Amino acid sequence: MRIGVVNAGNIGRALARAWLAAGHDVMVAKDGGQQKLDAFVAENPGAVPGTPAQAAEFGDVVLFSVYWPRLDAVLDAVGPQAGGPAGGLAGKVVIDTMNPLQVSGDFEHSYDAAFMARTSTSEELQRRLPAARVVKAFNTVPSTLLDARRWPAPEPAPPVLLAGDDASAKAQVRTLAGDAGFTALDAGPLTSARNIEQLNVLVHLLADHQFEGALDRLAPAVLVAAGVPTPAQG
């Protein structure tokens, strides 16, 4: 499968690495921080570097792993590939890993509660890309844990939660989750992305108050609370 990663940040690079290992063709693009992209390509020779517009055009599936306050800028960089029924993303599966963060003048981050009360990043992305098939996924697992090697068999990795209105698109994302070493759970239509994003608020609250902000320790703890076995910590 051809996969375009529109913003190879921490999540994008983790998934790109896994999908390359699974035999997929991957083009990676970066919204700023080109040194990190260059280093990733050097460490992963199968990865093809490109611009956001090229990655959007390249992929049969396109990963939108974008810092939410930068969405407008990234969509502008993607350009005509994003817009309208005739755009390069028309008919493509677009995976949304984003969370609705807002940033203060002091660069403090918080979830945009007013936004979350009425919609989700996935619904907004679908509105902006009306001809694409948007699927919410990969936004509740910390990027450092989106590496199946952190979850050695027979212990289960945390599940990837999916939401989307197109069943075949969700099936493709489920396959890609499996290729990355994770199972996927279907939460229903795209509006369920609101619930998934709210869950991520809870994840961060638990990390902040119970684990001093250590998200790496949080995911196993949540699974223990749910009665699910977790990998050995080391």
Results as ranks from 00 to 15, higher is better:
149 R>V: 01
4 G>P: 09
49 P>W: 02
64 F>N: 10
74 V>M: 13
100 P>Y: 09
234 G>L: 12
174 R>D: 15
39 A>I: 01
135 V>P: 09
53 A>T: 02
66 V>P: 01
26 V>D: 06
18 A>F: 02
67 Y>C: 02
10 N>M: 06
183 T>V: 13
9 G>A: 10
97 T>Y: 09
12 G>Q: 11
227 G>A: 07
116 M>R: 07
120 S>W: 05
185 L>N: 02
190 L>P: 07
80 P>V: 13
135 V>A: 06
139 N>G: 09
116 M>K: 00
26 V>Q: 08
110 S>D: 04
177 A>D: 11
113 A>G: 03
150 R>V: 08
142 P>V: 14
118 R>K: 13
154 P>Y: 10
97 T>Q: 06
98 M>V: 04
192 S>Y: 00
61 V>F: 09
190 L>K: 09
166 D>W: 07
140 T>D: 02
149 R>F: 00
211 F>R: 10
130 P>C: 08
153 A>Y: 00
86 A>F: 00
92 K>L: 04
111 Y>R: 03
119 T>I: 03
16 A>F: 10
110 S>L: 02
2 R>A: 00
115 F>R: 06
100 P>N: 06
49 P>D: 03
206 L>Q: 08
152 P>Q: 05
218 L>F: 06
205 L>F: 06
117 A>I: 00
200 N>A: 12
225 A>G: 15
146 L>P: 05
135 V>Y: 06
197 E>D: 11
166 D>R: 07
67 Y>G: 03
63 L>S: 01
20 L>M: 07
76 D>Q: 14
217 R>S: 15
118 R>V: 08
80 P>Q: 14
155 E>C: 01
61 V>H: 05
7 N>E: 12
30 K>W: 02
3 I>G: 07
29 A>C: 09
47 A>H: 08
85 P>C: 00
229 P>Q: 11
57 E>D: 12
40 F>I: 04
22 A>V: 07
97 T>F: 09
123 E>C: 05
72 D>Q: 13
6 V>R: 12
71 L>D: 05
184 A>K: 07
32 G>T: 12
44 N>R: 07
151 W>M: 01
47 A>P: 07
140 T>Y: 01
133 R>G: 03
186 D>K: 12
224 V>T: 14
42 A>T: 11
139 N>A: 12
147 D>G: 04
183 T>E: 15
186 D>I: 12
137 A>N: 03
145 L>N: 03
83 G>L: 05
5 V>P: 02
232 A>I: 04
15 L>T: 01
214 A>H: 10
181 G>Y: 04
65 S>I: 03
118 R>A: 13
208 D>W: 01
25 D>Q: 15
84 G>R: 10
134 V>C: 04
34 Q>R: 11
205 L>S: 08
7 N>S: 14
149 R>P: 00
57 E>L: 11
224 V>M: 12
142 P>Y: 09
125 L>P: 07
90 A>Q: 07
6 V>A: 08
215 L>W: 00
